[in-house]
Design a protein around this nucleic acid. Structure first.
Lengths: 204, 204, 204, 204
DNA sequence: CATGAATGAGACTTCATTCAT
DNA sequence: CATGAATGAAGTCTCATTCAT
């Protein structure tokens, strides 16, 4: 039980994910986390300066871990429809494999701290911006038709999150490949009947 | 001016929306709400039995107000692409007009109370289910092609929320009609180049 | 319902007795008393300056009413055993007829106010002293044997209160005449077997 | 000196007795007790879950301590007059030695809690019933004459309490042995002049 | 390093009292 | 006179953080 040094820090993080995920930031007591980690309450303060600091460390580490799942270099090479598929599949797989962490990352919205909130918003904006850039590139490459890149990036981002939420909150077991493919199909080809001229097609 | 009993309740609700929206449930003090409403701390308790009761009352009233924006009878008549447009437009307009309320309704995720959390989840599931039923009907009517109704309802729901969030959090001023139309276009027609055969088109 | 002036004051007192008796001083809210009296909360303050003042007024009035039951002039004439009987009978009758008031007078011990507490203690001391004087007179008159008048007055006082408590708290229906007579018998004649020499008889 | 867990609980109890005794339940603040015990406010809650719990713990412990003073086995052997003496003496000694505790035990009447109130009433009833059984046995043994055992047990109980009250409230220094003996004498032999026929003697 | 007993700032809530009507 | 909506002081309890061991 007396792991070296860093084993304990990790144990605290793991415990924190579990408890924060279950109860939310404000309903979580440091004591609960200590109990989950099977260590003394005071020990947490050897590794983290405060509750908010623990939360942030956990959050940032978690987000890093999440983003590492998306190997951007390889993805650049993929055609857009595959890019969407890989993105979606990776996200769903992550949520399925890390429900608790995902709950913290994607559901914890009550800002424990203004600074953290801003940081999170910036990360998300950056990610959306990344997707948007990819969209612009794909339009250039004529992989996809010309459209408002901003709207599309919102749609993509939002839908992925939404799949995650149904896993986390409703505890559904979405099949990553099936959902990724179906989603890609819808977004690439639309939902209108093939060949039919949709009224909105002529648009503005 | 000590008599008028009503109006004060509303004033408290309005103040609560503002403060809960700004700080979240747990970072909000009853005193702050009282100050915002320009009344005494104790007065709140004349109208609401507790902090959680105030929050719930505000939340439920807000959600009711939100749902009232969607006249379901008329919407049933619309073709699917217009249905999407109207839905999206109403949502964006609501978020623009009620940023603070929208923030509470769509961002407050830390359950102040398990019961409320379940209630919210149920409301959302019901709404998604409603959209899903509409999708099935539209497939039947051959307005849209045959597809996984569940996935599509998630996409629609998620995208709307996402537009709201960009208004609420990033303080963007989305043009309701433009976004509604562009979104409808993407979802109906897809993003692939017209006439091009998309690889995923042959599906599964 | 719009009684003259003093009717309302009395009504408040009556309500106060009922509610204070039921809940005790600190668990009683001014609002409860107002509700019981079927008047507005503010109206109480037209007749009593504060909660403590209402309590004191009620208490003092009640004690006066209680003491009025003991016509000291007539009682002076009675032989001691009858004096005890009349005293006890009057007390039991009072408690039976005014359970709620009696509860306030004899059970409310948590001093709502130091001043009142002292006042009550003084009243009781005075009453015990009165009984003691009567005892001394009776010893002089050779109605009773020579003994420690202080102890006897405590016994008499305490026993009466005790009978009252069993009525108030245990809700027993003591027969005033029976108890008065039996008590008088015991106190006058003792409990030892007639004629037997009790060991303590020779004592000290 | 942060470790020792016990001793602190006792210190809180002692402080609680002092403060509750001085001010009564409702006029006592947790902060006052903490100050008296020279500890922090929050520390009390490490040992007692609430104010009412602290009061009950103190009360029950105190009553236990009180009852332990009466060794019932030995007392069964004593003749009735000595039984009364020992009972009275022990009670007076307890009140003298534990004025504050005695005040809480015998004067605190405003029920902080209905449950506790009932518990106290039951304890007292049980004690009175015990004394009554002893009386019945003594009548059987012809130690005392035949009489209403219920009345006599009330008298005995009441008188003891009364002695206690004069110690607690009036701060009198009663001599335990003197009072016990004189009281026993009165109760055994009555107050009537020896040999004189008391009118009530022939009774009913 | 590790611990958990101790702490006290701070939040919710109650209720006696006031005062405009 | 009568009222009851409004008030805010005051009390209970929680929990992040500290520090002696």
């Amino acid at each position: 039980m007396k792991k070296p040094k860093e084993g304990k820090r990790q144990r605290i993080i793991v415990a924190a994910i579990k408890i924060f995920s279950r109860n939310g930031y404000h309903n979580t007591k440091m004591e609960d986390i200590a109990a989950e980690a099977e260590i003394g309450k005071g020990t947490i303060y050897e590794y983290f300066s405060s509750k908010i600091n623990l939360f942030q460390s956990m959050f940032e580490g978690g987000l890093e871990y999440y983003h590492a799942k998306f190997d951007t270099d390889k993805m650049e090479m993929l055609p857009f429809n595959e890019y969407i598929q890989v993105l979606t599949e990776a996200h769903i797989k992550f949520c399925l494999a890390n429900k608790e962490l995902a709950r913290v990352l994607f559901l914890e919205k009550e800002a424990p701290d203004k600074e953290l909130l801003e940081w999170v918003i910036n990360i998300r904006s950056a990610k959306i911006e990344n997707v948007r850039k990819r969209i612009l590139k794909s339009i250039e490459r004529q992989e996809i038709r010309s459209l408002d890149s901003s709207i599309l990036s919102y749609i993509i981002q939002a839908t992925m999150i939404s799949f995650g939420i149904s896993i986390i909150v409703e505890d559904k077991n979405l099949d990553p490949e099936y959902y990724a493919e179906k989603y890609s199909d819808i977004i690439m080809n639309g939902i209108g009947r093939k060949g039919a001229e949709m009224p909105s097609g002529g648009g503005v």
